[in-house]
Design a protein around this nucleic acid. Structure first.
Lengths: 243, 243
DNA sequence: AAGTGGTCTAGACCACGGC
DNA sequence: CCGTGGTCTAGACCACTTG
């Protein structure tokens, strides 16, 4: 559930349209009202309607055809992730239709490895906070996440960190930082012994590994994460639509 | 090289800004002129400048900060794929800084497998065109692509198909269809014997597999592709930026 | 020809950040 | 406080698709 109240007019229009699509008032594959009709119905300018429609089109939920109309994309529900949500593990799990829960495995302070130091622009041996967590889809373990953050950024006592929080909230609450951008590398690896313990299944199989680097507003690296992703349990799929 | 002449004003502004960023006139990490300044310089409305900037922001090339300014993202070059380019193998290769070439392996007509029939909404045994191709990054084979298209969609003689073309152009030229949307599934698999022959390297390793389904404007499936992607040779990485 | 989305303008006010 | 980007309006014309 998302309890965030959207304040902008276009966001409200956006959510209303989304609701109508989900409820089937605008049926899947069918044509939606024109921009003029919507702007008249909602009492906003056509430009405002357009920004709302642009958001929906960007996620692939609707298809827009010049000279024809706007259609509800019947295929959109088939995708688990929208563009740019790759870093957001909670979204990935919920996009597959599961309920996500996070189990913290360990939160500790240790020297950075060479790879971590490189990604975080630290010296080798500088202290980092390692946050190891396991993500569940319903009751099944699907992602083993290891996020590493420079200790120097910490603004609250390390003992106070709640490992069940969303990474975005962890940064805001304990580091007083906002994530400005992220780069995700997708790789294929053989399952590690540790991941196998959690995920179960065949002992010599390939799984996905999402290597995410988060950057703050000054373009400084905030965190580096290695996330083992059991793609036999969870689909990683993306939609893309053209105008 | 891209020789497409952009006709819209915002596209021209967009390209001009892109050029200035690449040439270092707007230095990496530095602040760009404000929207008002740009709109005055180019003699266009601020709204037009904004749509151009929005395009750049969507690719993560620039970062926009309310109350502060617009900055050139120093990290953008680190990503190989921009949002939604996952289906475009040529872009992926060139995003890694290589020159891409396509070698057709075979173009043939055969009955659909069960999996293909399901993806393409065909009956089992319906005829499909199988287009097998090998993508090179510089001189190294990196992607083994197998695209399957319903034979009934073909509008030109099968012998005339040029397997070296971009998939978008193949659809336009021989099938008279435009791709409206695509869904890409990313999976991790053990390398197949055939892919190993082309890619070389360790015999028992994991590689990425991109399963792409293309849809036309009527939301009907146009093609289904299985692309084996050697992620030891080519990075698959995505940027995401927030406002 | 009529209607659609795509682009563009010239204004306006608001929310936020830095000074 | 001022300048920034974020949002919004009420028009206008164009390009495209369909009947």
């Amino acid at each position: 559930m998302n309890f965030i109240q959207s304040k902008t007019v276009s966001n409200q229009v956006d959510e209303l349209l989304l609701e109508r699509i989900r409820e089937g008032i605008y049926p899947s594959g069918g044509r939606m009202p024109s921009e003029s009709e919507l702007s008249e119905e909602f009492g906003v300018s056509r430009a405002t309607v357009r920004t709302a429609l642009a958001k929906l089109a960007a996620t692939g939920l609707i298809l827009r055809k010049q000279g024809d109309g706007t259609y509800v994309n019947a295929r959109a529900h088939e995708a688990s992730a929208h563009m740019g949500n790759l870093w957001d593990l909670v979204c990935l799990i919920e996009g597959n239709g599961y309920k996500s829960t996070i189990r913290p495995l360990s939160i500790e302070c240790r020297p950075a490895t060479e790879k971590e130091a490189l990604a975080l622009a630290l010296g080798i041996g500088d202290e980092v906070i390692s946050l190891r967590r396991l993500f569940y889809a319903d009751q099944r373990a699907v992602i083993l996440a290891d996020n590493v953050i420079p200790f120097s950024l910490l603004r609250e006592p390390i003992e106070s960190i709640n490992g069940e929080l969303h990474i975005r909230d962890i940064f805001q609450t304990y580091f007083h930082q906002k994530i400005a951008s992220a780069i995700t590398d997708i790789r294929s690896v053989l399952i590690s012994a540790e991941a196998l313990e959690f995920f179960g299944g065949e002992s010599s199989r390939a799984i996905l590994q999402l290597q995410v680097t988060f950057y703050g507003k000054n373009n400084l690296p905030l965190a580096f994460g290695i996330n083992d992703f059991d793609d036999s349990a969870l689909r990683l799929s993306l939609v893309q639509a053209w105008s």
